[in-house]
């Protein structure tokens, strides 16, 4: 998995993406803020949505409570 390891830990790119999201962000916003390639952001956000870490509302994603909790040390 690109964003979540088999141990359920976030990859570095997933952390970057989650940290770059405020209330709501499009993949283009996240790509711009993280300097990750857009294709990778799209694939990563889709994967994180399947894992319940972000949710999609129309064309923008926002972190879920679970997603936010994984960012805090």
């Amino acid at each position: 998995m690109a964003c979540i390891s088999s141990q359920g830990e976030l990859s570095e790119s997933a952390r970057k993406m989650l940290a770059a999201m405020d209330a709501s962000a499009t993949p283009e916003d996240v790509a711009s803020r993280t300097e990750l390639p857009l294709f990778r952001v799209r694939a990563g956000l889709r994967e994180m949505a399947e894992a319940g870490l972000v949710e999609l509302n129309e064309e923008a994603y926002s972190p879920t409570q679970l997603g936010r909790s994984l960012l805090t040390p």
Binding site: M1, A2, L38, F39, R40, R42, A43
Partner: peptide
């Protein structure tokens, strides 16, 4: 090697 990718992920590039 970078996870599951769709062709549509490249839309715009």
């Amino acid at each position: 090697t970078h996870g599951k990718i769709r062709l549509s992920d490249f839309h715009g590039t």
